[in-house]
Design a protein around this nucleic acid. Structure first.
Length: 218
DNA sequence: CGACCGATCGTCT
DNA sequence: GACGATCGGTCGA
């Protein structure tokens, strides 16, 4: 199966790329063990102009440096001291766009995923949610940050078919109520009706706006 | 169900 | 010294 090429990640429109990623397959190979899952939920982060982005206002630190490089590499950071969240860097050098992968539908190596996650059955929580999917696929900040997505440790394989527009739902991003106006941007995408999409436990307080839907069909 | 809370540590101020 | 692009557990209605 064909890996998505580097050029795919270097595109200028991070929103479009976040939508196109749905239906493709994230694969890791660690110590000879292959695990994979179909991407069913993503969030786009628009760099320096996006208050929810780690690179907002041009913040450039050791942690975020990788985002300022060329697209097609992994940005993995530690959240709440526990979870490794997996992002894909997009766009050209000096434009720090990124896409967070929030949920997968397990495909390959389910036994390995269960072992890593300490679970017995492939229930919804195995790969639903950014922290959970990283644990299942063995994604680790120290192991994967800076890794090329066209290399042999972690990559994205083209899915079997292209999704119809009507199968993609846009909504507000999760857990970023600190981002002010940008908390209302409909930059979270998921596959309509897919059971592996993460459960937004309830919208952030700031997301509850009168007269404006937080989820809409594109 | 929903609300709340503790875990746990790298990163930034 | 404070705080997270989270998760899983508990508690009460």
């Amino acid at each position: 199966m064909a890996k998505l090429p580097k050029a795919f990640y270097c595109g200028a429109d991070v929103i479009s790329i976040a939508r196109q990623l749905l239906g493709n397959v994230l694969v890791t190979r660690i110590g000879g063990e292959i695990t994979s899952g179909m991407i069913v939920e993503t969030e786009a982060y628009q760099g320096v102009t996006d208050r929810a982005s780690h690179a907002w206002a041009g913040r450039r630190t050791d942690r975020t440096e990788i985002m300022f490089g060329e697209g097609g590499k992994a940005y993995v950071y530690l959240c709440y001291g526990i979870h490794h969240l997996f992002n894909i860097v997009t766009n050209q050098k000096e434009i720090p766009h990124a896409i967070l992968i929030r949920a997968l539908e397990p495909i390959q190596g389910i036994g390995v995923m269960l072992r890593r996650s300490g679970k017995e059955k492939p229930e919804h929580t195995l790969t639903s949610g950014p922290g959970s999917l990283s644990r299942a696929l063995g994604i680790d900040r120290r192991l994967h940050t800076g890794e090329s997505l066209t290399g042999k440790n972690i990559w994205i394989r083209k899915g079997k078919r292209t999704l119809k527009t009507s199968e993609i739902v846009a909504s507000t991003r999760i857990g970023i109520s600190y981002a002010g106006p940008d908390a209302y941007q409909p930059w979270r995408f998921h596959i309509r009706g897919n059971p592996w999409v993460s459960r937004a436990k309830g919208l952030d307080p700031g997301e509850k706006i009168k007269g404006r839907p937080t989820t809409r069909l594109l």
